[in-house]
Design a protein around this nucleic acid. Structure first.
Lengths: 160, 160
DNA sequence: GATGAAATAGCATTTGC
DNA sequence: GCAAATGCTATTTCATC
């Protein structure tokens, strides 16, 4: 599907994951290409889906969501109808800001934000009603490491 | 610490979380302000820390990390020295792309990417050596809901 | 105290090489 | 991929509400 990423693509990805709030000219200097070539590469990375999107990361507490939790969910059965209903609920709840099916001790891991305890309670309740048989809630206390770039350029993880 | 966010700030945050890859002029049209006023507000949001940063979100698999896992960690004891050593290891491991202390069934939740099983094994091993007494690993199978904006403008979560 | 309009400098983007 | 050229945009300034 996708072309292999060369050295310069990897540098671009590293830079843009760290800080996408820079001009194309600056990016070009960082990777040692002309602005035109840089622009073409970045466009290709976006079009190919390697760069999924460029977004502002907002501080949840500062934006009015002091409660952030991870929730590990065990579904009530494996019937497609059950998981489908659960998926729909997850996508419909705006407080659920990320969710994945997983393999392990539970079926899904959700990331949820809430304005207060009542707000959180409402969300958990709705998840229960849509097949969430067991919800293990982890309240986020403190950040150890902020969301960080994929180590695309890290020698310790290099494959070649 | 921070000023209250008014209606327009909220709109800006919603737009920039959804897609920060737009010109200031376009953003200005979306919120109904002049480019100059829009620029001032966005700058303020960044300077105040409400917008933590603007980043490119990269597809992990496309970037060479087909394995993504959540790991719930129980520490070996609550001694400050233990948690400090663990924090240092987490920050030093590039494959750990996010980590938080939590309250609940475990002490911390980590998000980890790996190029292959050997790579993952190495990371888990190092976490064990730095106080990770019990590691519950959840292998990410499929995305239910992609990382999504905080529902800053959602009426269902409104406080006023 | 923040906004809008005008002006300048710089950038994004295109084209030809 | 580069260099030059064009049209927009970011950013500042300043008057204004």
């Amino acid at each position: 599907m996708a072309e292999a990423l060369d050295e310069i693509d990897v540098r671009l990805l590293a830079e843009l994951q760290a800080d996408a709030d820079r001009t194309n000219v600056e990016l070009a200097r960082l990777v040692g290409l002309s602005p035109a070539a840089t622009l073409n590469r970045v466009r290709r990375l976006k079009a190919s889906g390697v760069i999924r999107r460029v977004v502002a990361r907002v501080d949840p507490a500062a934006a009015g969501f002091p409660l952030q939790v991870y929730v590990a969910v065990t579904l009530a059965g494996a019937a497609p109808r059950t998981s489908r209903a659960f998926e729909d609920e997850v996508r419909a709840l705006p407080q659920v800001i990320a969710a994945d099916w997983v393999a392990g001790e539970t079926d899904a891991i959700l990331t949820i934000v809430a304005r207060d305890v009542a707000d959180l309670k409402r969300v958990l309740s709705r998840l229960s009603l849509q097949g969430g048989q067991r919800l293990i809630t982890y309240l986020r206390l403190e950040e150890i490491k902020p969301p960080s770039p994929l180590p695309v350029a890290d020698p310790a993880t290099a494959t070649d």
